[in-house]
Amino acid sequence: MVEIKTPEQIAKMRAAGLVVAEIHRRCAEAAVPGASTKDLDEVAAAVLAERGAKPNFLGYGGFPATICTSVNDVVVHGIPDERTVLKSGDIISIDAGAIVDGWHADAALTVFVGEGHAPELHELSRVTEDSLWAGIAAMRKGNRLVDISKAIEGYIKRQPRPASGTYGIIENYGGHGIGTEMHMDPHVLNYVDRRRGRGPRLIPGLCLAIEPMVSLGTAKTHTLADEWTVKTNDGTWSSHWEHSVALTEEGPLVLTAVDGGRARLAELGVTAAPDPLA
């Protein structure tokens, strides 16, 4: 069942989303050469404590940390630890969530550590983030779920090919419904799978976490023995961007963006819904 939220419930999710945005800001600042991924996890835990929010990753299916920290060829679900020390030239996806009054928010961003990154890595991150916003812009009343997938895939495929030869849109992972739980129906693919049909119609009150994951090579991945860490099969590096988004009568509201998505959506000709907490 797809959970449809009231405006009051969306406001609570917006409160959780702002906590996630603060986690991202603080963790991005802390992602410097010499910091461990465990250090970033402690920063996220401190933000949650300061804001009176709860983590939604810690303990989820046995996950042992507050956030996911995925470095270089790790696509998603990297486990923070003291052994993984960041160095200049790394990229890291920081996937974070928060619960406020029982309502969830979830988002991810790709951070560049130090200096010395190849131009194609910057372009990989840009393409991934921009495809996210293309998907968010397609989250309009009357569209179907597949329109989000089509917008993400179409944007990526229109971009100039990288030096590595291709952008791999990671298979078997994607976005999801979100609300009283972190992962809910419907599953949101980042590409069109005609076997799944067009999916449900998008209506006000629907909340989705949209999250493209793109590599500089393969779309194929494997999971390590820890049963969490997902890596690309060919060792190419990947980028991951995610926002939680609510569809309202007045348009999309990006719950985990500080400005509610107003600036980026305006660039795409879409008006963001008013912020219920403004």
Rank of each mutant, 00 (worst) to 15 (best):
I169M: 08
A53G: 08
V113Y: 02
D81I: 10
L224F: 12
V245M: 07
P186A: 10
A35D: 11
V214I: 13
H122R: 12
S164C: 11
E3T: 14
V188A: 05
G154S: 07
N56M: 07
A138I: 10
E181V: 11
P55Y: 01
N233L: 14
G61Y: 06
G89I: 05
E8L: 14
A273Q: 00
I148M: 12
A105P: 01
N233F: 14
D193A: 13
G17H: 08
G179T: 06
I99L: 03
A134V: 00
S149L: 09
Y167L: 09
I178N: 02
A137I: 04
R51S: 00
A28V: 08
T166I: 12
A35Y: 10
S70R: 00
I152K: 10
P7T: 00
W103P: 02
I178A: 05
V75F: 04
I94N: 08
M13E: 04
A44N: 06
A118E: 15
D106F: 10
K150I: 07
G261D: 03
A151K: 04
V214A: 07
E120M: 13
V127Y: 10
E211K: 09
G217N: 05
G177V: 05
T218Y: 06
N56S: 13
V100D: 00
L277N: 13
I152H: 02
S36I: 09
L202W: 08
P7L: 01
D226S: 02
T128W: 06
L208N: 05
I148H: 11
D90I: 12
D234G: 04
L265I: 01
P119F: 02
I99P: 03
S125G: 09
E250T: 02
H24E: 12
F57N: 15
V113N: 07
I10M: 09
V19D: 03
L253M: 04
V32L: 14
H122C: 00
E227V: 15
G17L: 04
P80M: 01
G17F: 02
K54A: 15
A44F: 10
I91N: 06
A134G: 01
T69L: 15
A137G: 01
V245C: 05
G61V: 07
I203L: 14
I79V: 15
G17N: 06
G89C: 08
A151Q: 05
E153A: 11
V100L: 00
G174Y: 02
E249L: 12
T223M: 15
H183W: 13
S88A: 15
A246E: 04
A118I: 11
I4V: 14
A272R: 05
